[in-house]
C-alpha cells in the first residue's frame, strides 16, 4: 500500500514537472497548463477560508483584483516591475480582509456570503470610476519586457513553473495548517461554531486568520495573473463570475480537502478553454450550457465534490470492514 501510494505521488510530481517540456511543441497546451495552475492557486487560497473554515466567501475577486491592480499600478505609476506590487497587494488584501472580516464574520451562513458579494460589487464599481486605476478600460502592464524581472514572457513555460512553485508552497502551507492546532480549530468551528466556542476556541480570531491568509494568496494569484496577461480591467479583476468560479472549482473537486481545488481546476479550466478555442466566440453559448449542466449534475449526485468518490468506495486492503457479517460483500454485486 505504502509503495503504491509513493509511486502515485512520484508519478504526479514527474508529470507536473515534465508537462511543459512534453508539450513544448504546442503553445496552446502549455498555456492551458499554466492557466490550470493559476486557477488552482486562487481556488486553493479560497479553500482556506471557504473550505476549511466553512465561511463561504463569494467575493474573493476583491483580493484577486487588488493583487492584479497593485501589480499594474507598481508599473504604471511607479515604473517598477509589476511583481514588486505583489507584496503590497498582499498587505492591502490582508488589511481589507480585516476591515471586511471583523464585522461580517460574525454573520453566519448566507449572511457572510451576501456581505462578501456586496463588498465585491462595491469595489468593482468604485474601481471602474477611478481614473487612477484606468476606469472601466483598465490598465496595461509593460508592453515589452524591459528586464527579466518584469516576468513578461512569450512562452507560457516560465509562468507554468512559477505558478507550480507558488501552488506547491500554498498547498504545503495548507497541509501544515490542516495538521496544526489552527486546522483542528477550524474544523471544529466548521462543524459547530457554538460547540467550538463553548469549548473555549476563539472562533472569531481563527476565522479571521483563515480569511486573512486566504486573502493574501488570492491577491498573489491576481498579481501573477497580471504578469501573464499584462492587462486588468474592473470586470476581469473584480467581477462576480471570478469569485463564483473560485467557489465552484473548490466545491467541484472537494472543498476543505487539500487537492480539491486543484482537481476542480483540472476539470473546469480545460473544459472552458478548449471549448472556447474550438468553438470560438460563436459557440461560447454551447460551451457554458455544457459547463453548467456538468456542474448541476455533480452538485446533484456528488454534493461533497469529486474527491468524495474516493472516500465512499472502500479500498481493498485499507478497510478490513470488521463488523461485516456478509463475506460476499467484497464481490461486485
Amino acid at each position: 500500500m505504502m509503495t503504491s501510494r509513493r509511486l502515485l505521488q512520484l508519478a504526479v510530481i514527474v508529470v507536473a514537472l515534465a508537462y511543459p517540456i512534453v508539450t513544448s511543441g504546442s503553445p496552446v497546451w502549455q498555456r492551458l497548463g499554466a492557466l490550470v495552475l493559476l486557477a488552482a492557486i486562487s481556488a486553493s487560497a479560497w479553500n482556506i477560508v471557504g473550505g476549511y473554515a466553512g465561511q463561504v466567501s463569494v467575493g474573493h475577486a476583491v483580493f484577486f483584483g487588488i493583487g492584479a491592480y497593485a501589480a499594474v499600478v507598481a508599473f504604471v505609476h511607479l515604473d517598477l516591475p509589476p511583481i514588486l506590487g505583489a507584496p503590497i497587494g498582499m498587505l492591502l488584501s490582508v488589511a481589507v480582509a480585516v476591515v471586511v472580516g471583523v464585522p461580517t464574520l460574525r454573520l453566519s451562513g448566507h449572511y457572510f456570503s451576501m456581505a462578501t458579494i456586496a463588498v465585491g460589487e462595491l469595489v468593482r464599481v468604485l474601481s471602474s470610476t477611478s481614473d487612477w486605476l484606468g476606469g472601466a478600460q483598465g490598465l496595461g502592464g509593460p508592453a515589452m519586457p524591459r528586464t527579466v524581472f518584469d516576468l513578461s514572457f512569450v512562452s507560457a513555460m516560465p509562468y507554468y513553473y512559477i505558478f507550480l512553485a507558488v501552488l506547491t508552497g500554498l498547498l504545503g502551507l495548507t497541509w501544515w495548517i490542516e495538521r496544526s492546532r489552527m486546522g483542528f480549530y477550524l474544523r471544529a468551528i466548521k462543524d459547530s461554531e457554538r460547540a467550538a466556542r463553548s469549548l473555549g476556541v476563539s472562533a472569531g480570531r481563527y476565522k479571521l486568520h483563515a480569511y486573512m491568509l486566504s486573502a493574501a494568496f488570492t491577491s498573489l494569484a491576481g498579481s501573477l495573473y497580471l504578469c501573464m496577461f499584462g492587462f486588468i480591467d474592473p470586470e476581469s479583476g473584480f467581477g462576480i463570475l471570478l469569485s463564483v468560479k473560485m467557489v465552484v472549482m473548490a466545491a467541484l473537486g472537494g472543498a476543505g480537502q487539500l487537492f480539491g481545488p486543484l482537481i476542480g481546476a483540472l476539470i473546469l479550466v480545460p473544459l472552458e478553454e478548449l471549448s472556447n478555442s474550438l468553438l470560438g466566440g460563436q459557440g461560447a453559448g454551447i460551451t457554458f450550457v455544457v459547463y453548467g449542466a456538468i456542474i448541476v449534475i455533480i452538485a446533484r449526485f456528488l454534493p461533497s465534490g469529486l474527491l468524495s468518490l474516493l472516500e465512499r468506495r472502500p479500498h481493498p486492503g485499507t478497510k478490513a470492514a470488521p463488523a461485516n457479517p456478509n463475506p460476499a460483500s467484497g464481490h461486485a454485486d
Binding site: 463569494v58 456570503s113 466545491a251 452538485a299 454534493p303 461533497s304
Partner: peptide
C-alpha cells in the same frame, strides 16, 4: 452542504 447548493 451549503456549497452544493451554491454549486447546483
Amino acid at each position: 452542504p451549503m456549497l452544493a447548493q451554491i454549486l447546483g
